[in-house]
Design a protein around this nucleic acid. Sequence first.
DNA 1: TTTAACTGACTGACAGTCAGTCATTATAGT
DNA 2: ACTATAATGACTGACTGTCAGTCAGTTAAA
Lengths: 201, 201
Amino acid sequence: MARVSKKPEVRRKEIIDAALSLFSEKGYEQTAVSDIVKKLGVAQGTFYYHFKTKGEIIAAIVDSLVIEKVDKARELANGGGTAKEKLAIFLRGSGTREAEPMMLGFLHHANNAFIHQKVLVQVVQQSVPYVMKILEQGAEEGTFTIRHLQETAEYILTGIHFMFDPGIFEWPEDALTHKRSAFMQIIERMLGDSFAFVPFV
Amino acid sequence: MARVSKKPEVRRKEIIDAALSLFSEKGYEQTAVSDIVKKLGVAQGTFYYHFKTKGEIIAAIVDSLVIEKVDKARELANGGGTAKEKLAIFLRGSGTREAEPMMLGFLHHANNAFIHQKVLVQVVQQSVPYVMKILEQGAEEGTFTIRHLQETAEYILTGIHFMFDPGIFEWPEDALTHKRSAFMQIIERMLGDSFAFVPFV
DNA sequence: TTTAACTGACTGACAGTCAGTCATTATAGT
DNA sequence: ACTATAATGACTGACTGTCAGTCAGTTAAA
């Protein structure tokens, strides 16, 4: 075969892209390394020159997904607006078809559940500081009163990322809108948002 | 080989038990069907006489785990005590070493993440009615005031089962006690528990 | 000339198959 | 009641196809 040498970074990216596309179609388990290299027109050894195992390619994909999602949380926390607005945006943008670059089909394939879970746990844990920042801002603005800052942030993130992820809980499409607004209200009360809820004492 | 015929229910149970024990040691992926039948001293065909695929044995295991956990929620909901007490018991009993029969080692093996997830989702969804019942009781007792009954139950269950499951989030042992009590307080406020929290208005 | 990227045939392990075996149980003939 | 015979269904184990991972050797580029 006509042999082409490329810089490792370039080849790695090619391999990752091809893998991602196949994982989206067939799922991780159902995609053979031989499928990936066939799609690229390289030998199987090439794959193993750049990646130690088939699983290692997942680590690479997971990392890039996590970074992307956590970045959004950071930007939101550091951007402008009231805490309440930021939180609403955060909720609105979760569990939707958009937001994902092209990984959507890949992550939500039933066979990739465990990768999905890894991503979510990482995203939740790494986003905690940014949500805490938003909550602190809300406290300063007088909108929120919070006792357990970190745990509250963790719990909100868990709700957003696990409950509203279409790959975990598969809520019917029409129930989602209602669920999301209910969730927003529940969280507002959790945050002691005095403008959102007056207890009936 | 000396051939022994047994009733399918008996054989199935034998196979499930052997599989469970091996999954605990080595994980699901790392256990070959040939390992399972070797342990039992039967032929490989016997396995495939009783189960269509290797994966099917998981469905059987998952089902029995789910039933067991959901049963506990139902008993709690139908038993005696105030709603607040019941909720406390529910929180206390989650994410601990005990409570599990022998599946512990099996579910928390890193290689079984996806089975674990299936169990959790099923448990959450099937427990919702029982937690709702507890919340309704709390409303009647005047302890709780709740707007979105179902969503609140879903969110509480998600918190309990995902956040506090040692196989998903791996919190350090000493942080757990504090986290659990913080979680209880967050939930009490979420439920508008007027005896637990007075907003600083 | 050296080195780093690449090759592709090969290996071992595994999930799943299948044609056939044997123990058990039901039925019929005496 | 007491066998012979048939039918059933649990069980066998050698076999197949597929796949992750290996490695000794090849070639393009620096």
